[in-house]
Design a binder for these strands. Structure first.
Lengths: 189, 189
DNA sequence: AATAATAAAGAATAGGTGTTCTTTATAGAC
DNA sequence: GTCTATAAAGAACACCTATTCTTTATTATT
């Protein structure tokens, strides 16, 4: 009996990522979100409730569909191979765009407890994953034995956030790959 | 004849930094800016013209009065001493707050050409200054001769942006000092 | 084909935003 | 002390935003 919905939630979320990346949360007007997603206003509020709840859902989608692709390298825990894989994918993700999660943290992190929690969990997970890979790499003899695993994990973690910012400013991403070599090179035995 | 103004522009800019750090640009309402600075509406628009122009002026003030304090270490060009000095001051600046320049770049960088330019110049300058200090450090024998100065400069630069993000999320900044040791330690001969 | 259910489109609404205008108060020149 | 120029305070305005409501269109069953 009912008419079939034309919109596809996955696609809407994907299009919304682009809008939030371009204008941030407060800078993205509902009018633009509605216009650029194959969506209608009423459907939007039935489906998502509010702009804020929508942001959380978009963010979860971004983590699952985009960030997770890069992070999964680390969770395969294959030493330096995984770490290289992560950086290759991550640079591809953020080049010319930046990282939605980082942008939202810097815009709303102070006011929005939930965003801050998401950010902390993300950083913790990243750090733990890096440490796992570094331990494996040390076992495999891929990196020097005297390297402090915990400190280096923390260091790589900070480094990743730096890439997210550089991704917005740097047109050329060769520099980012170069910088990756600079950080990973000195770890070798 | 005229009444003397009560507000002090320097103080207003300083107070505005706090507001923009907390809520971002679009998230900071004029009502709050007016309320939290010792200012009045009319005076504000006579002095600064608009919210956007005000942001540029606050940002310039932030660079001159806050970031420059940290960066000046690097421009004294005294090798590793300068680099350590920079990180100590920078961490102190961003702890629990983040960096206003980075927050604004991630919020407005895509839309606002002027902000993107400011960001690029800032990064370029930082990188050049790091390279200068690393060259000096190499001459002084403070770091290994086989280190690639350009790549390491780029690496430190990315790293600094990472600190700006971590500053918002990490309550504890000891980690950041620890991470600094992790990055600077391996450069030693 | 008629009908019922719901999607799509977009007009309407209530509240918030940046900016300007009006009024009142005050400090200094005469 | 009077007068005047301008600061302070905040009301007013026009526009914009998120959200809701109304109308129209469409599809699947009967």
């Amino acid at each position: 009996m009912p008419r079939k919905a034309l919109y596809n939630v996955e696609e809407v979320l994907e299009q919304a990522i682009a809008v939030f990346l371009e204008h941030g949360y407060h800078g993205a007007a509902m009018d633009e979100i509605i216009a650029r997603t194959d969506f209608n206003r009423r459907g939007f509020y039935i489906e998502f409730g509010s702009k804020q709840q929508f942001l959380y859902i978009v963010l979860a989608h971004y983590q699952e569909q985009h960030l997770a692709k890069a992070i999964s390298h680390l969770e395969h825990n294959q030493g330096m191979l995984s770490i290289h894989g992560f950086f290759t994918d991550y640079i591809d993700l953020v080049k010319g765009r930046g990282c939605l999660l980082i942008n939202i943290i810097t815009e709303l992190g102070f006011d929005d407890l939930k965003i801050r929690d998401i950010g902390r969990h993300y950083l913790d997970r990243l750090q733990i994953d890096f440490i796992g890979c570094l331990e494996k790499a040390q076992k495999l003899g891929e990196i020097r034995q005297d390297i402090n695993i915990e400190s280096t994990g923390l260091q790589l973690c900070s480094y990743v956030q730096g890439f997210a910012v550089n991704g917005i400013l740097a047109g050329d991403t060769d520099e980012l790959m170069l910088a990756t070599q600079a950080i990973l090179g000195p770890l070798k035995p």
